[in-house]
């Protein structure tokens, strides 16, 4: 039960951390690194409010041990902005009011980021399939889908507004 030393990339920056075996990523981010953008909803991997991207794959941070980060790269909602410029997904969420209480929003945005990185020109069904990973109890999903579709249409015309990592 000796803390493990881990090296990983946190929102683009190399980090070394000491973590105990029973520390889940959700608590590591929120309590140790003060990155509270990942929210704890169901603590069971069902709601996806704590979704972050590890090596560009969406994972529920309540279902992932901190030590598993060793050698990997994690992106949280706090890492999505570039020099105070919002990611186009964040901008689209604002324009379409694609959130209400906001508790699922970090996770939803990151799921959609992963989707766009894996499938640059997804259909509406693909959007629905990806966001069905997470639960939004407020919006009925329509405005989230609208935000995603707006970005897909915009990128089809102009390409992404920033390099996707």
């Amino acid at each position: 039960m000796i803390p493990m030393e881990i090296d990983f990339i946190l929102n683009g920056r190399a980090v070394t951390g000491k973590v105990s075996g029973n520390l889940l990523l959700a608590d590591y981010l929120r309590e140790h690194l003060d990155l509270k953008g990942a929210k704890i909803g169901c603590s069971r991997g069902a709601c996806g409010s704590c979704t972050v991207l590890v090596n560009n794959i969406p994972i529920a941070a309540c279902s992932y041990f901190a030590f598993q980060l060793d050698g990997k790269s994690v992106l949280t909602i706090e890492g999505l902005e570039r020099d105070t410029t919002l990611h186009d997904l964040q901008q689209a969420f604002i324009e379409h009011a694609a959130f209400q209480c906001g508790y699922c929003t970090s996770g939803m945005i990151l799921v959609l980021k992963a989707m766009l990185d894996h499938e640059p020109n997804p259909s509406r069904d693909t959007v629905v399939e990806w966001i069905s990973s997470n639960i939004c109890r407020c919006t009925g999903y329509a405005q989230i889908i609208a935000a995603a579709e707006a970005i897909i249409a915009m990128r089809a015309n102009t390409g992404p507004t920033e390099a996707v990592s």
């Binding site: 953008g37 919002l86 964040q90 324009e95 906001g102």
Partner: peptide
């Protein structure tokens, strides 16, 4: 007018703080 919500920026950036935080 469908203006951006007052809480938009803090919610899309994850900076919003709830009681749980």
């Amino acid at each position: 007018v469908g203006l951006p919500r007052k809480d938009a920026l803090e919610k899309v950036t994850g900076r919003v703080r709830y009681t749980a935080d």
